[in-house]
Write a protein that binds this DNA or RNA. Structure first.
Lengths: 345, 345
DNA sequence: CTGAAAGCGCTTACAG
DNA sequence: CTGAAAGCGCTTACAG
């Protein structure tokens, strides 16, 4: 008993294949009674269109590629949930890790071509995955691309994107630290020129400059957006006596790494050192001490990103490119405190 | 300029489509010289087989479905890396979250049927994803399934699986705690009857019983393998005066949640309470205090699981079912310490 | 609103 | 070792 195909349905319903196909794909163009009859047969024999045949015939798969820096980063969990929720069962999501791609761009393109992906969501806008290079190659049409989470640099401004105002968020967080009396603030950032942190660095520098701190950009350390990155930076920063009194970290993992170094060195957080993270991942609230941080609406980022992609897929003629700015929120917990007066030691 | 197809290659090489196809799929059956000529043409015009057509024609996709409880759990990061490394570019990995599947089994089957997945890796052997139900339904052939990370219950013993000896690992960890003088030890586990924790619970109970502790299974709390689960259990456990002196947690997230509750309640870890985790995720080492835990070779779990699947895919006739037991390792950091003598308070 | 026919790009017996 | 031919299950102009 083989899997039923469209021809069995057609035979049983007494119509042609074309009509069955229309019932599936453009029911509005089918007579009500015919439609009902065909649907009944479909139901009765449990017919399901062969996706492989559909994809082949239509010349495109049902695969959406989502590029993340690192699947393990807990921030992606909610975002991916949001994406899957919207894309639903109509599309399959496959993940690619930018950090794992030593071969970089070539393999990325390979994958796009080989898998005949229908759309791309970039949750990391590294140069390797320059969205301008998506499509237009190898006889492929240009693919819809949406950028999520990351700000979009000016030269990519024509691409739809969904993210918070990173500049403003970093400005707010830094201002909060400044308001607590801190002046010796260091910003532990990600890779130099990484798009996700550039805006944050500018926000930091701007707040610092407004508060009269000299050469704020000298207070920015570049590294890796990871626990290891936080550890490395903290070792450089906290080993010396004239260490900063507050650390603003480009993400929570960095902050967690930095706090562990502080603990090792016997520096108390927040008494001797305030630490502020970014993202409000699930590990922030239970850190010891609980981490103050900047929250992003991650699930919403995923949902909105996916909705924009869906729109682009369903309305290829509609070239409207939206930039959606979602709200951020300062979450103050226990890892930050007012600057202690000098005579502390 | 359309994407080149097999017929252009055939024409340019002066052979038939069949021969080009053979060059691609069974080069050993092609004359060396013909092969070389065809390959040259392929190279020259940049031909790449249309995967969509291949999949359709062969009646199967190149998709491997990996089921995890929760993508965000950091333990899966390395495992997925391992899987991807082995499955490489030949297959696409799509992820399904068991926790997200309220509809459960039905949707799972739907996905399998609809996407025509070629193989399944189960990183969570919940009843919803009972591997015996994979395949055999809806006119589909039985699919190769490999279980990773989780122990396999006796009734599924005919399925290949890759995991540590969870019973032994829990026994070892509990014994370590007992050797430190602890007797009032609680085990915070996952869902009741969750296969991943059953073996661990038995290992715990066995070690406790050997040490003469009465009713060890009464010391097992069931909840959720998450930070929230750890928080909930810790609230039940640590609120009362006759609280345990040591907590053994079924994973690191639980331990992190429990430690945060201890911190809130002013209970010092490890002075007043030893806490032991499981998995050695990236958040264990930088916790405050750094978390003692049981490490699993996660990347290897992924690689071995994927290799078994690959074997099953390439040798469907070979029914050999392997159970691979990988080594575990106790990692002792700062969250565990010898029991303090009574007169502490 | 419906049907007959062609065709998407490949693979696979089959015959030679 | 190679080629001619059929066919996988669907969709899509086209004609009526």
């Amino acid at each position: 008993m083989a899997k039923p195909t469209i021809v069995q349905v057609a035979r049983l319903a007494g119509v042609s294949n074309s009509t069955v196909s229309r019932c599936l794909n453009q029911p509005e163009n089918v007579d009500k009674k015919t439609l009902a009859r065909v649907r009944k047969v479909i139901e009765d024999i449990g017919y399901r269109p062969n996706l492989l045949a559909q994809n082949f015939r239509r010349g495109q798969s049902d695969i959406v590629l989502v590029v993340v820096h690192n699947v393990g980063a807990s921030i992606f969990s909610n975002i991916l949930d949001g994406i899957r929720g919207v894309l639903g069962s109509r599309f399959s999501v496959i993940l690619m890790e930018s950090r794992a791609e030593a071969q970089g761009h070539a393999r990325f393109i390979d994958l796009l071509v080989a898998k005949q992906v229908v759309g791309v969501i970039l949750l990391c806008a590294s140069p390797t995955f320059d969205p301008r290079l998506i499509g237009g190659f190898d006889h492929q049409p240009r693919l819809p691309v949406v950028i999520g989470l990351e700000p979009v640099s000016a030269d990519l401004a024509d691409l739809p994107s969904v993210h918070i105002d990173n500049h403003r968020a970093a400005f707010d967080a830094t201002t909060y630290l400044l308001d607590m009396g801190h002046r010796e603030i260091a910003f532990i950032s990600g890779e130099k020129d990484s798009p996700i942190t550039l805006d944050r660095e500018r926000g930091f520098a701007e707040a610092m400059a407004q508060a009269g701190c000299a050469a704020p950009s000298a207070r920015i350390l570049h590294g890796d957006l990871s626990i290891q990155g936080g550890i490395a930076a903290a070792h450089r920063l906290l080993g010396r006596p004239e260490r900063p009194t507050a650390l603003f970290c480009a993400n929570d993992d960095i902050a967690l790494g930095a706090m562990s170094v502080a603990a090792q060195l016997g520096i108390s957080v927040p008494e001797d050192l305030s630490v502020m993270g970014f993202d409000d991942t699930i590990y922030a609230a239970t850190a010891n001490p609980p981490l103050s941080t900047v929250a992003q609406p991650t699930r919403e980022v995923g949902e909105r990103t996916a909705k924009q992609l869906l729109h682009a897929l369903d309305h290829p003629e509609d070239a409207e490119q939206l930039t959606e700015i979602l709200p951020h929120r300062l979450i103050i917990r226990k890892s930050t405190a007012p600057l202690r007066q000098k005579g502390k030691a």
